[in-house]
Structure formats: C-alpha cells, structure tokens
Amino acid sequence: MGKMSKEIKICINGKVIKREDIFKRKDIFHKEQAKLPFEKKIEILVTLQKIARNVKGKKGIVWKIE
C-alpha cells in the first residue's frame, strides 16, 4: 500500500483535520460563494478589480459604481 492511500491528518491551530476534509471544505466554500446575492458578488468583483489594478499598475480597470 502506497503512502498516498493512507489517511493523512494535519494539526492546524490545535485542531486535527483530515487532509481530504480540507478539500471538502474548500468545495463547500466555493459553492457558498456561488450562492451569494448578485449585489454582494458585484462588490467582490470591484474588490478583485482593485487588487488586480494594484498588481498590474494603472492599466487595470475598476468600475466606478460606489
């Protein structure tokens, strides 16, 4: 039996979590984000545009809707 087939547990901040549970939680998080109201998603989008502009420099577009 290879190493990958063993259940890997990780201790994070005093909590023991199964490695596969980390990915399950990520999956749940993405599905929850998908269910956010449209208005909230647009707010997040503008934040993402601001982050991208900071990375890319002045060329990035940020919606001026605030």
Binding site: A34, L36, K41, I42, L45, L48, Q49, A52, I61
Partner: peptide, 11 residues
Amino acid sequence: ALFYIEPFLTY
C-alpha cells in the same frame, strides 16, 4: 456567469 457562480475577475 457571475450571477450563478463564485465571483471572479472580469471587466
């Protein structure tokens, strides 16, 4: 798409 899925960068 953003209406249905997780927010992502678009312009």
